[in-house]
Simulated assay, not measured.
Amino acid sequence: MTEPQDQCLLLARMKAAQAETQRRLGLIERQIASRAERLTITDRTKRRQRGRNASSWTSADERLFQQHVAELGLGSRGDIDALTRKLDRQETAIAEFRTHHCVSAAWR
């Protein structure tokens, strides 16, 4: 049987790996949103030549932004799906570890 300090270290490593996976997934999502925003602003500027101070974001701009997010997300679907599946496996492994070693979720 593993000692409590070994269990603590193993759980900490599992949680660190899970946090890294979440960070990578969040990074991809932020990159997609940033790119979609740039594409929307560029497209909006081409259509409306009001100058630099035109900063009103219309509902049409929001729809275009969401369309760009969907298209870019589709292009990154493989990476996003792989990271999401990995995150699910990590959550399951942590839950099983806690159950098997009688460790509560409050114990960090």
Score class of each variant (00 low, 15 high):
29 E>G: 05
46 K>L: 09
66 Q>G: 00
86 K>I: 04
39 L>V: 02
77 R>A: 14
95 A>E: 10
56 S>R: 15
26 G>C: 13
41 I>H: 07
68 H>Y: 11
35 R>A: 01
31 Q>I: 08
20 E>S: 07
35 R>L: 15
63 R>P: 06
19 A>R: 06
78 G>H: 14
18 Q>R: 03
5 Q>W: 11
96 E>V: 10
28 I>W: 00
53 N>E: 13
68 H>V: 13
68 H>S: 12
96 E>I: 10
102 C>M: 00
55 S>D: 09
30 R>V: 06
14 M>F: 09
65 F>A: 04
36 A>S: 02
46 K>N: 07
17 A>Q: 10
1 M>F: 13
96 E>W: 03
63 R>D: 02
21 T>V: 10
104 S>D: 03
99 T>C: 02
1 M>E: 05
3 E>W: 00
102 C>Y: 08
30 R>S: 05
51 G>K: 08
58 T>M: 15
5 Q>F: 04
58 T>L: 14
101 H>Q: 10
57 W>H: 01
42 T>W: 00
108 R>K: 09
58 T>R: 12
21 T>W: 03
6 D>F: 13
95 A>N: 12
73 G>M: 02
53 N>F: 14
104 S>T: 12
12 A>V: 10
53 N>D: 09
106 A>M: 06
66 Q>I: 05
10 L>G: 04
63 R>T: 10
55 S>Y: 12
20 E>H: 13
25 L>Y: 02
31 Q>K: 09
14 M>S: 00
83 L>Q: 07
54 A>N: 14
67 Q>N: 13
49 Q>P: 03
1 M>K: 12
99 T>D: 03
40 T>E: 05
98 R>D: 07
47 R>S: 08
105 A>C: 06
99 T>P: 00
9 L>H: 01
13 R>S: 06
60 A>W: 15
29 E>Y: 00
55 S>C: 12
8 C>K: 07
85 R>W: 12
34 S>T: 07
47 R>E: 01
77 R>K: 14
33 A>D: 01
87 L>Q: 01
33 A>G: 06
75 G>T: 08
11 L>G: 03
3 E>C: 02
50 R>Q: 10
32 I>Y: 06
29 E>R: 03
64 L>R: 05
56 S>V: 15
42 T>M: 05
29 E>W: 06
81 D>M: 11
91 E>F: 01
107 W>N: 07
57 W>V: 09
76 S>V: 06
23 R>Q: 01
45 T>H: 11
14 M>L: 08
28 I>R: 10
37 E>P: 00
100 H>T: 07
94 I>K: 05
73 G>V: 10
6 D>W: 13
34 S>F: 05
50 R>N: 03
1 M>L: 04
52 R>C: 15
68 H>N: 08
61 D>L: 06
22 Q>M: 14
99 T>L: 02
70 A>D: 04
34 S>D: 04
67 Q>P: 06
41 I>R: 07
82 A>R: 09
84 T>P: 03
17 A>I: 14
11 L>E: 00
39 L>I: 06
53 N>S: 13
79 D>Q: 02
81 D>Q: 15
49 Q>T: 14
